[in-house]
Design a binder for these strands. Structure first.
Lengths: 267, 267
DNA sequence: CAGTGGTCTAGACCACACT
DNA sequence: GTGTGGTCTAGACCACTGC
């Protein structure tokens, strides 16, 4: 982070000089300056130079550090803010996004009550059913970019809203980055689980992909969610990624949708 | 569109002058110039000055028309492009987004096959079950911002992929803007339904909200989708909006999720 | 070649938050 | 007041498209 790619005059060709010899470059590989700056800021985020919730240096400071104009830094930050990695706050500075922030609570939970806004039922009650070490099955290994048989942590829990069990979740985590995670910690932490991951393990979830299906309640789900055998449930399989698209969590949720629904906006 | 809000020097206070008398403005109502320009372009889109698929004037032309700098127009267009209302194409111009474009086919359909990319099963087969005039129920009226009993068009159809009936959809449309829509037109049009709406009725869908639940197949859904009674289906209720957030379609879909799944990206 | 969007810079000024 | 992000401008140059 001390040395920086500087282009004192004009354009930049992804670090390579525009030699006359390179007559037919298969990939022009033109990368705008602001994209390179974006990459440098991303590195700082990934390496923990600035942690979730903290301010990053001002645009002017970054511009001086990277030897570019403030406008170029601005454009880089604009994109990172659009991807929810950074949060701008006028007059205060630019902050590293965090799942602990109150205004984005449950950023990745799209199940909302049929009546009333998202958080209107008070805090969710969490019951940890189990939390243990295990070996990755082929499916789990593929999702987490591990090898079959690698050590993973597996947890199962039930979330209840207003006393009604509504969500059952199975969570798989790679064992190495989450060494030391216990059922007690999961149960006692107040706030989003992804905020716990930030504070205890320096893992910040940035993005996730979900596959959603309708499935009947079987295999003991009926008891845990207190519904009749065969009741249709929403099956939500999620892979969550940290910076640079590294998968760090597999989660399989079963949602009751008799009093809640999954809400999505298309644009 | 002939006269434009011009601020020859510096800042703009939403058209109101900064009179010394206005001591305590409840709403500061500061609106950046580029937001106003964005609104003007939006008006042009809504009024059909430029239709889906067409080019809009170049940034320089718009800058001259609105008497602002090219950079200000650029920022306005940037936001409209981010909202998928416009599409920029370097070297060619900026185009009005359209559902007829091949690269965004089925923009609002998030059901994808379990194996293979979205369109890999060939075109969907469409069977129109019915298409008739009706009166809006209280629910339908609320969704479409109509009054109970107002005239609506209702259609029911089945979409099949590779010969397997996969989606049953009920569609409600306000009768007035869609006057003349027939089952034949719906059945014979090749391409996304929202593209048909653009070409035949000048209605461009911009955004949609979906509520998703798991529900058992009943009430004849079993026969139409060829599944056992009680099979869990994904219930997807969608309200689609045109420019300026005017609701123009209510759609209730039932998706089979034995070979497909609803895919969503969180960020 | 001309025309389009895309990048980069530099400077001025405004809105907002803290002190 | 000072420092932050936010807006606006003007000009130069680059990359892509199509004539």
């Amino acid at each position: 982070m001390s040395q920086t790619p500087v282009s004192s005059t004009g354009n930049v060709f992804a670090g390579a000089d525009s030699s006359v010899l390179a007559s037919a470059p298969v990939t022009p590989a033109f990368s705008p300056l602001y994209q390179q700056i974006k990459g440098l800021i991303l590195n700082g985020l990934r390496l923990g130079e600035w942690k979730p919730g903290e301010v990053i240096p001002s645009e002017m400071e970054l511009a001086a550090r990277f030897r570019v104009s403030q406008g170029t830094v601005r454009k880089a930050i604009d994109e990172l803010a659009a991807e929810n990695l950074l949060v701008r706050r006028q007059g205060k500075g630019t902050f590293v996004a965090t799942h602990a922030a109150q205004y984005v609570q449950f950023r990745f939970l799209k199940l909302v009550p049929d009546s009333g806004p998202p958080g209107s039922e008070g805090p969710a009650q969490r019951d940890i059913i189990e939390c243990r070490r295990a070996r990755a099955s082929a499916d789990v290994a593929r999702a987490l970019a591990l090898r079959t048989g690698d050590a993973v942590l597996q947890a199962r829990r039930v979330l209840s809203f207003a006393g009604t069990p509504t969500i059952l979740e199975d969570i798989w985590l790679p064992a190495a980055p989450f060494k030391g995670l216990t059922a007690e910690r999961l149960a006692n932490y107040h706030g989003p689980t992804y905020a716990l991951f930030e504070t205890d393990f320096n893992v910040h979830m940035v993005r996730a992909e979900e596959k959603i299906r309708a499935e009947p309640a079987t295999d003991g789900l009926e008891q845990l969610l207190k519904v009749a055998h065969g009741t249709p449930l929403l099956s939500v399989e999620r892979i969550a990624f940290t910076y640079k698209d590294v998968p760090m969590e597999l989660r399989r949720g079963y949602y009751r949708t008799d009093t809640h629904h999954y809400h999505n906006t298309l644009s």
